[in-house]
Computed example of a mutant assay.
Amino acid sequence: KWAETVPYTLRNPLYHWTHLELQRYFDVHEILNGDSAQRIYEECSAKLQTPEYSVRNILRKMNVKVVCTTDDPIDNLEHHQKVKNDGFEVKILPAFRPDKAMNVDDSAAFNGYLSKLEASSNTSIASFTDYLDALKSRHDFFATMGCSVSDHGLEHVYAEDYTDAEIAAAFAKIRSGKELTREENLKFKSAVLQIFAVWDWEKGSVQQYHLGALRNNNSRMMGQLGADTGWDSIGDFSQGKAIAKFLDRLDTNNQLAKTILYNLNPADNELMATMIGNFNDGSTAGKVQWGSGWWFLDQKDGMIKQINALSNMGLLSRFVGMLTDSRSFLSFPRHEYFRRIVCNLFGDEIEVGELPND
């Protein structure tokens, strides 16, 4: 069915990615469609049966040096340890993704998560202090496994004012099975997000914030297939004030780690391009970064707009570069896609004399 659909994806990045993957991995240069599907399937399937096409050899073929996975704090990282023990030369490192650990939208779900956190941290969680101790032990464990980056997928940054007493009371309330008010919810998330950021700063880690997704919009399909199965869109959340307040609070205490911000709504491009300049204090070149076009913006037009906004309002020369979260071992041609776009931009401006030809 996918092969029959491909011809309809003209001008969608899926058309380019599909054929780049066939070409770069399998040396298949035929257009994929309903007529060619069986031939291409048989050729690719035969190659996948050979040792050359093991996952590890695919990574070697694409000259991969490091792969970072996205992992929940309760994950035991056993597979990372096995890969390390095997002596595989490509580093496979975890990233600390605590979204579920701070999601207090539903008390039953949160308390269910805490039970798993208790098991993974081998501790009992009765208070907010216990909760933080358990998460800190996981954060420390991740660091021993080579983790040097955290990743947060949020509608927007949380940066409400709060007191320690308010957060302790909110935790006790939800731990008892009661639901938090909206104000309590936002304050709790603000407190925990701040604490996570300080832990990253203490370890010299990088913190990433992917902002602006409006998730699980189709309740009927979510009921049939579950969360994160394709029913998400770009959200129109307000971002600027909260980001500024969050980063400033950390910077004021000299606790701002290296940071990468990603926006999903292209309307926030110029906001992000200018926001990062507020906190690049010279201590580290490119300390606060605006990441490349993410998710729905991970395509030609989205990449060009991101690169142009960053060039006009910041320093492209300090840009962290391409990132893809496709979670596929065949997705590395997307980096080629990005490089081609960058080279075209520079080449066009060199040809008209806007950049030196050196």
Rank of each mutant, 00 (worst) to 15 (best):
F26P: 04
Y209P: 04
N269G: 08
I243M: 14
K82F: 10
V149I: 12
D35E: 15
L330C: 03
P7E: 09
K173S: 09
T284L: 12
E89I: 10
A285Q: 14
N218S: 15
T18W: 04
E354W: 13
G177L: 04
R327Y: 00
Y337W: 13
K189W: 09
A273N: 07
K287Q: 07
D236G: 12
L225N: 11
H156K: 15
G314K: 01
E166D: 07
L180F: 04
S176Y: 05
E30L: 12
L264A: 08
G212Q: 03
R97N: 05
I276S: 01
L20T: 13
D86C: 10
F171P: 04
L20W: 14
R56F: 08
I350L: 08
S137K: 14
F141R: 15
S328M: 00
L93Q: 09
N216V: 13
N111C: 06
N63F: 09
G177Q: 03
P51M: 05
T163R: 01
H19T: 01
L345D: 02
N218M: 14
R60C: 10
V342Q: 00
E43C: 02
E78P: 02
K100M: 09
L32H: 04
A168Q: 04
H29W: 10
E166S: 05
T274R: 14
G347Q: 02
V83T: 13
W201E: 15
N308I: 08
K173N: 08
M275P: 03
N344S: 06
V90T: 11
K84N: 13
Q239I: 03
Q306T: 11
A95Q: 06
N253R: 14
I304R: 08
F188C: 11
Y15F: 15
E336P: 01
E354N: 15
T9E: 05
F110V: 04
S233P: 04
V320W: 06
R175T: 03
A257N: 06
W295Q: 10
T9A: 11
L132N: 13
F329R: 00
I74Y: 07
E4Q: 15
E183W: 07
G282Y: 03
A257L: 03
D164F: 02
S219R: 11
Q306C: 08
T284V: 14
V320C: 09
L48V: 07
G146M: 11
N216P: 05
E202M: 05
A3R: 04
W294M: 02
A309R: 08
E183N: 15
L180K: 06
A119R: 10
G226S: 05
L59C: 09
E166L: 04
Y113S: 03
N103L: 03
L330A: 04
A273H: 06
F346S: 08
R220E: 13
Q49H: 15
Q81S: 13
L20Q: 15
W17Y: 12
R175P: 00
M145H: 15
R175S: 11
R327K: 01
N312R: 14
C147V: 12
D130F: 02
I260D: 01
D248E: 07
L77F: 03
W2T: 13
Q81V: 12
N103I: 00
A143L: 10
N263S: 12
G282T: 03
Q208S: 00
F96M: 06
D133M: 10
L193D: 05
G321H: 02
F88R: 04
D325H: 02
P266G: 09
A143C: 12
T229I: 13
W17F: 14
L59M: 12
K47Y: 01
D232R: 10
D106R: 14
T284D: 11
P94F: 15
